[in-house]
Nucleic acid binder design. Structure first.
Lengths: 221, 221
DNA sequence: GTCTATAGGCTGATAGAC
DNA sequence: GTCTATCAGCCTATAGAC
């Protein structure tokens, strides 16, 4: 019974797999928060309760660890998104389902949205070509849903690419700002804006579906 | 006539003001692209065609230069947003006006959205308390517009805070991903997604106004 | 597999000449 | 105000013991 509880198994000495996973987890959190250059291998090793030399041993160095984290993060995301492709429900329902799914993915991997934003900000500098398809599947999922909605007439004629940028942006931004909204605002004496993620997800889904629906042109102009 | 052409005035030796501005401009672009830790003072000086010791002389060091850039960026943004506060046009028109204004601000300061995202990602670590109000004015502008729209009945009853996160997120994300969309996608043999900013802004404004409008509940559920 | 010790490179800051 | 030369600190990677 080696892998009954992969996430929180207590570290044992000379358990290579546990070490690797601890380093991956520590790195994911620290890289997401401070960026690749803002983190030292010593900080990662410290958080993982491992020796810093093990980063080179297991991943070939700091950059290798970072790549491994990107692969794992975006790979599992792409796998989760596969389920949506299969479904043939109406586009608006799929869109709501997509938003829910993002919520579930982020709950399991809190560093995901910050990694997405950081990669995109730096132009994907450290994103291997082999991981690019997985990364793009996030956008592709939305695009194909919107394309279907437009094709079947359930959505107005919008540009799917424009739409997917906006939706992904709203979602990634929300989750990436959680710490800022809670800590920075509080420290400045302002009321923190900390809605439950579920509330935000519902809001966005509703806004999108309504915004994409046909209907009388907007009230004023 | 010292300031007829502040942006592109040719550098003259021993012109302190020109040096300062060149360093600010170079730093803004490099910090936006690579983050604070991803940039060396040498790189900034090189791009500004100045000596790296001048960063310490004029700004007290790398961190001082970064702070000065944040102040300038968010300060001018807040000033631009003031105009909206004054207007008393209907909320949906104001929202469209806000989106246009963001487009204009970004055109003048291309590093703005990336700076916003980077600060928010790192929890505002390097954002001075005195700059926080300016930074928050971006969100405050949207929130007060939405509040007005809900109050006057022109918008449905949505949470203004949720709404402002989504709109700002869509906008900042779009502009922050321009380089990624053009370079990374092209390098991977995929068609670049590079709509004119104006097209995206129109799309988002339309989506928001429609999404916030009253109307028959969404088609399917 | 893990740990210690150290090497080697790079970076930000500054003293002092101009 | 600007520039050159230099230094101290930090950081990643690795050789080698266990």
């Amino acid at each position: 019974m080696r892998s009954t509880a992969p996430p929180a198994r207590p570290r044992r000495p000379h358990d290579a797999e546990a070490t690797r996973e601890a380093l991956l987890a520590a790195g994911a959190e620290l890289f997401a928060e401070h960026g690749f250059d803002g983190v030292t291998v010593e900080a990662i090793a410290g958080r993982a309760q491992a020796n810093k030399a093990l980063i080179s041993y297991h991943f070939g160095g700091k950059a290798g660890l970072y790549s491994a984290i990107l692969s794992a993060t975006f790979g599992s995301m792409a796998a989760d998104l596969e389920a949506l492709r299969a479904s043939d429900r109406p586009a608006d329902e799929l869109l709501r389902e997509f938003v829910r799914l993002v919520g579930a993915m982020v709950a399991r991997r809190p560093s995901l949205p910050r990694m997405v934003l950081r990669e995109v900000l730096s132009g994907g500098e450290r994103l291997h070509d082999r991981d690019l398809p997985h990364f793009l599947s996030l956008f592709g999922a939305v695009r194909s849903i919107v394309e279907r909605g437009v094709r079947t007439g359930r959505f107005r004629k919008v540009d799917p690419a424009l739409t997917h940028i906006g939706l992904i942006g709203s979602l990634m931004f929300f989750f990436s700002t959680e710490r800022f909204r809670q800590q920075k605002l509080a420290r400045a004496g302002l009321p923190a804006i900390a809605p439950p993620p579920q509330k935000y997800l519902d809001h966005v889904a509703e806004l999108m579906v309504r915004g994409l629906a046909h209907g009388p042109a907007r009230p004023g102009r």
